[in-house]
């Protein structure tokens, strides 16, 4: 394996997919964020925490510009980060993934990781817009979210090992993973924060959030697959003397 090429194509794929994620968010997610933050502002005016005056709005538009611009930069950072994990897993599993080309194998792995690390955790702890979430519970919510992703990810890895060792009845491994996640769903606490805002806003936000993250995983699989197919970082030229 050519180390620098291996790292380079993983980071390039992750960065590109992360920027695509940021662009999708700018188009689809931002209107929901603006609406949710608008509701937060109204609550602050009503409670006297902030005053509805030109100084407030000048500061508001300044930090909102910073936050919106951050979609692309943080998309690139998150993309390289998640892409690094994906690249490590792809490096180890590429010869056993389904598909007759690296492009198809990369897409297959992206689909597996999208389901186990995003979609299943999302079903238990879905994304929420601003206005939902008590700052006092942030550490608990972060801990629950990370723990659930870890259970799902390591559970998938563990049951894959069982799947490999089973000579027949391989479905047992899938049933085992489903059982583990079912138990995690039932036993792990709910998000403690009560939703007091419109469910139309929350559900609309969650739908576009899924579209954005799905676009990321699809892009990551496509880009890494094409780069791997073209550049083949695992092929090493060696001189042989006869």
């Amino acid at each position: 394996m050519r180390t620098s090429l291996f790292i380079g194509i993983i980071l390039l794929a992750g960065c590109s997919a992360g920027i695509i994620h940021g662009l999708v968010n700018l188009v689809l997610v931002e209107p929901y964020l603006d609406k949710a933050i608008g509701i937060e502002n109204q609550h602050m005016f009503a409670s006297g925490e902030a005053k509805d005056n030109p100084q407030f709005w000048a500061e508001y538009y300044s930090y909102r510009a910073w936050q919106k611009g951050g979609q692309l930069l943080s998309g690139a950072i998150l993309g390289m980060s998640i892409g690094s994990l994906y690249g490590i897993v792809f490096g180890y599993s590429r010869n056993i993934l389904p598909g007759n080309s690296f492009a198809k194998k990369a897409l297959a792995l992206a689909a597996i990781m999208w389901i186990t690390l995003y979609l299943i955790p999302f079903a238990k702890y879905p994304a929420n817009p601003p206005t939902v979430g008590d700052p006092a519970t942030i550490v608990l919510r972060e801990t629950l979210y990370v723990a659930f992703i870890a259970i799902s990810g390591f559970g998938a890895l563990g049951f894959y090992q069982i799947y490999k060792r089973l000579k027949s009845r391989k479905m047992v491994a899938f049933i085992g993973y489903a059982g583990l996640m079912g138990a995690a769903f039932a036993l792990m606490p709910q998000n403690p924060d009560v939703i007091t805002t419109s469910m139309d806003l929350v559900n609309g936000f969650r739908a576009v959030s899924i579209v954005g993250v799905s676009a990321f995983w699809l892009s990551l699989g496509l880009i890494l697959g094409v780069l791997w197919q073209k550049l083949q970082p695992d092929k090493v030229k060696q001189s042989k003397f006869q």
């Binding site: 994620h21 940021g22 968010n25 997610v29 931002e30 964020l33 930090y63 910073w66 936050q67 919106k68 951050g70 979609q71 930069l73 943080s74 998309g75 950072i77 998150l78 995003y118 955790p121 999302f122 702890y125 879905p126 994304a127 929420n128 817009p129 601003p130 979430g133 700052p135 942030i138 919510r141 972060e142 979210y145 936000f205 576009v208 959030s209 954005g212 993250v213």
Partner: peptide, 16 residues
């Protein structure tokens, strides 16, 4: 936190 705020919400992380 502010720089990553919008991506944090959109990607599903608990934010605040």
């Amino acid at each position: 936190h502010e720089l990553t705020h919008d991506m944090r919400h959109a990607a599903g992380f608990p934010c605040h």
